[in-house]
Amino acid sequence: MAQLSTIPQRGGGPQPQQATARMKFYVDAKRCIECGGCEVACKNENNVPYGIARIRVVTLNEGEPGETNIAIPCMQCSNAPCVAVCPVDALYHRPDGIVALNKETCIGCGYCLYACPFGAPQFPKGSPFGARGVMDKCTYCAGGPEVAFSERERRLYGSNRIAEGKLPMCASVCSTKALVAGDAEEVAKVVRERVAARGAGGGAWGWDTAYGRGGS
């Protein structure tokens, strides 16, 4: 992946896609206004059931100076702890960096829940004996390991906007562009612009955890 970020940017005309992109989220904690558009759009797009949040906006210090909102999807980490701990390899990296889930392999053990620094894994059930059901999480609107656009994929994972050449629904509807998704290089450009405008801090919440200090 590392060599991708060294491809020089050209100022000329539109460029053809040269290599597989590496997908990232940019969660700008200085811009999110907790409108909830991402949460609602995600549920509508992916038929997410009541009680499951593939993305959730968290507010800190509500009603006081320093009030901050953070939209938390699955960050699709580079060195993803969930992938590392999954005992059945239900979680894996796609070539474009998206952390995918195979719901038919998942045994619902919940290791990923404890490993994830963002609270992304969701479980449909709670019971006194610990049965949680099969894990569900943000797919980056990239469906799952099924035939793209099939009814089966839709039922298990929701939509597959990536296969349609579109960005995740949450970022597409973000009212203040606090949640930015896309190819790492494009996202990094947005971060750089905002850092430059603000003088300090891109508000890129969770980046070090998700992508490491080098931002690979």
Binding site: R31, I33, E34, C35, G37, S175, T176, K177, R194, A197, R198
Partner: peptide, 18 residues
């Protein structure tokens, strides 16, 4: 506006930042 006109906050925040 953050609650009543969320999209307008995009412009307000851009004014603040840039």
């Amino acid at each position: 506006p953050a609650e009543n006109h969320p999209i307008s906050m995009q412009h307000i925040l851009t004014a603040k930042e840039t």
